[in-house]
Design a protein around this nucleic acid. Structure first.
Length: 555
RNA sequence: GCGCCUGUAGCUCAGUUGGAUAGAGCAACGGACUUCUAAUCCGUAGGUCACACGUUCGAGUCGUGUCAGGCGUACCA
């Protein structure tokens, strides 16, 4: 609808210029917006103001000329007015909103899809938690956002791949191995001092028991280094299995799991370093190898090979991001915790030094999640670190509530996750507010099937035109905005826009439900309203699906 | 010190690439179920958009500075 109005205005402007009613032939971009107050119409444009200086005419005069030149063959506009400094307000006829229903019924679960991405290959890398401990709520937020962003981009015409990068190499894995190894020795009755830098959680003791169980026969006969190595491999693998299980129960899947160790095994890290050497991006200082990131806007240069000969995490990340582009992606999206924001500049530097454009790389920073219970912060145990485990939260509040709440804020806003509120089955809890619409509609449809017939409500132009109540028109207006909401969510990579859209649509439906009865003795209006609520149900389901939340048939 | 993020109603937050009178939910107060699910709806009240300048027809939105909070500033990951 918005685009139709835009075309009408553009045509009118061109016509006015042709007629010589406006002196300058230069066109300004036409911006159509939806006024906040309904007294200002369904749409308005500021075109007269933006053209005022160009045309050297008063804005209201320009508005006057444009309105005179408007052609409206589809009879969409019931009236126009000039308001304020020169806005043109458009009031749409009720009938003009009806066709959106046919569109929704025609496209079904593809309603809102677009070709925005033109089939470009995009990779969304998210979660990527180190396999050194279980996922916590912060990872959950990243998982919900990453998954939803991937869904939205895919729905908007991108060719999307979801990837999890496994940090299964380097010091932290050694530390993990040593932590488990020490707990094994404890189990075997040896007195050990457990260092501060080792992983403290109780899950380490569980892993130690399991590790010992698997190698009971010959564990003691191994050399200490081999024992640690075994513990590291065993622990990393079983933690990773746990992470996969958690993600699975959260409904999050990946197309690809990419191993950091694999980068080393295939010589990709060395190759990247070699390439940077040849291209003069690195230099030696104090025995270490430095990458000249400050040339690309970083505050200082960064080490990629330490003086002891070991590569840094940054080195594998350079190789990894080069590899992403080599695999043919046009766009790379990384979802990180906000505490890694200092890392963005140097990765960007690496990408530019590798000959790619920094616009091809985007980082979504997920801000902190504070777990609270009825408003009181949940004390995080420094000892076990397990009180904020994602699996506990999912078990307690359910997957749908957790996902919806994670997506109910902009991800750059800190989130208070209230366990009590998430469990509440009331209007305090937005997820049920939206799901309830879907279930409520299903309940009406069920009633209709039982009471009347098995036939589907058919499209009936005559019946549709009976939908003229304010609550019905309101629903139609919101429904027609859905594709635009998806577009914005895709362009800005912001799933919460869909969450808010669904809340607004749900509010309008509940208001409609309370004001207007769907099933009545009048078959024509009943059919039209069934047609309307099925469309609402479809859009609710579409939106929830993009967010990774289920759409229940009954509640 | 420097960098990034945040600051909007009592609370939690939206605010569509700068638009007209800044919105929603919760909490508060007053109403609505013999009718398709009250997990709902309707109404009332609530604001110096942290602060100050600037850019322009027009600023919650853009720029500069100040204040407050969070995070980051390793040859850690």
């Amino acid at each position: 609808m918005k685009n139709k109005i835009k075309t009408i205005v553009e045509t009118a402007v061109k016509k006015a210029i042709q007629n010589g009613e406006m002196p300058s032939p230069t066109l300004a971009e036409v911006l159509i917006e939806e006024p906040k107050v309904s007294a200002h119409g369904d749409f308005s444009t500021n075109i007269a103001m933006t053209m005022a200086s160009l045309q050297k005419m008063a804005p209201r005069k320009i508005s006057d000329i444009i309105i005179k030149n408007i052609d409206d063959p589809g009879r969409l506009i019931s009236r126009t007015e000039i308001a304020g400094p020169g806005f043109i307000n458009f009031f749409i006829t009720p009938e003009a909103w009806h066709p959106v229903l046919k569109e929704i019924h025609g496209l079904k679960d593809r309603f809102g899809a677009s070709s925005l991405g033109q089939g470009k290959k995009v990779q969304v890398e998210f979660v990527s938690a180190n396999p050194t401990g279980p996922l916590h709520v912060g990872h959950g937020r990243g998982a919900a956002v990453g998954d939803a962003v991937a869904n939205i981009l895919s729905f908007s015409g991108y060719d999307v791949q979801r990837e999890y990068y496994i940090n299964d190499s380097g010091r932290q894995i050694n530390t993990l191995g040593r932590s488990v190894f020490l707990r094994v020795k404890e189990i075997l009755g040896e007195a050990v001092s457990f260092p501060e830098e080792c992983y403290q959680g109780d899950y380490i003791k569980d892993l130690a028991r399991m590790a010992l169980e698997t190698r009971k026969a010959d564990f003691s006969s191994l050399a200490e280094a081999d024992q640690i190595f075994f513990c590291a491999r065993f622990a990393a693998q079983s933690i990773l299995d746990g992470i996969k299980a958690d993600l699975d129960s959260f409904g999050v899947g990946f197309d690809h799991w990419y191993s950091e160790q694999g980068l080393f095994d295939q010589g990709k890290v060395d190759a990247a370093i070699q390439e940077f050497k040849e291209n003069g991006h690195v230099y030696e200082k104090e025995g270490a190898l430095w990458f000249n990131t400050s040339r690309y806007g970083d505050e200082k240069d960064r080490v990629i090979v330490r003086s002891n000969g070991q590569t840094t995490y940054f080195a594998s990340d350079i190789a990894y991001h080069q590899e992403k582009f080599k695999r043919g992606f046009d766009r790379i999206i990384d979802v990180w915790g906000a505490d890694h924001h200092g890392y963005i500049q140097r990765i960007r530097a690496a990408i530019e030094a590798s000959g790619k454009k920094s616009e091809q790389f985007h980082v979504i920073l997920i801000h902190l999640v504070n777990l609270v219970r009825a408003g009181v912060p949940v004390a995080m145990s420094t000892r076990s670190g397990e009180f904020d485990a994602l699996s506990d939260v999912i078990n307690e509040v359910g997957r749908d509530a957790a996902r919806f709440i994670f997506l109910s804020r902009h991800y750059e806003s800190p989130l208070d996750f209230d366990l009590e509120l998430a469990k509440k089955k009331s209007n305090d809890n937005p997820v049920y507010y939206v799901q309830y619409v879907h279930a409520r509609i299903e309940s009406i449809l069920k009633k209709e099937r039982e009471k009347y017939s098995e036939r589907e409500p058919a499209f009936d132009g005559k019946g549709i035109s009976l939908l003229i109540a304010a609550e019905e028109i309101k629903l139609l207006k919101i429904l027609s905005r859905y594709p635009e909401a998806i577009d914005h969510a895709a362009v800005h990579l912001e799933p919460h826009r869909i969450t808010y859209f669904l809340m607004e649509l749900s509010a309008a439906f509940h208001a409609f439900y309370n004001a207007i009865r769907v099933l009545s003795d009048d078959p024509e209006i009943t059919s039209a309203r069934l047609y309307l609520i099925r469309a609402v149900q479809q859009v609710i389901r579409n939106g929830l699906t993009l967010l990774g939340v289920s759409a229940p048939l009954s509640m």
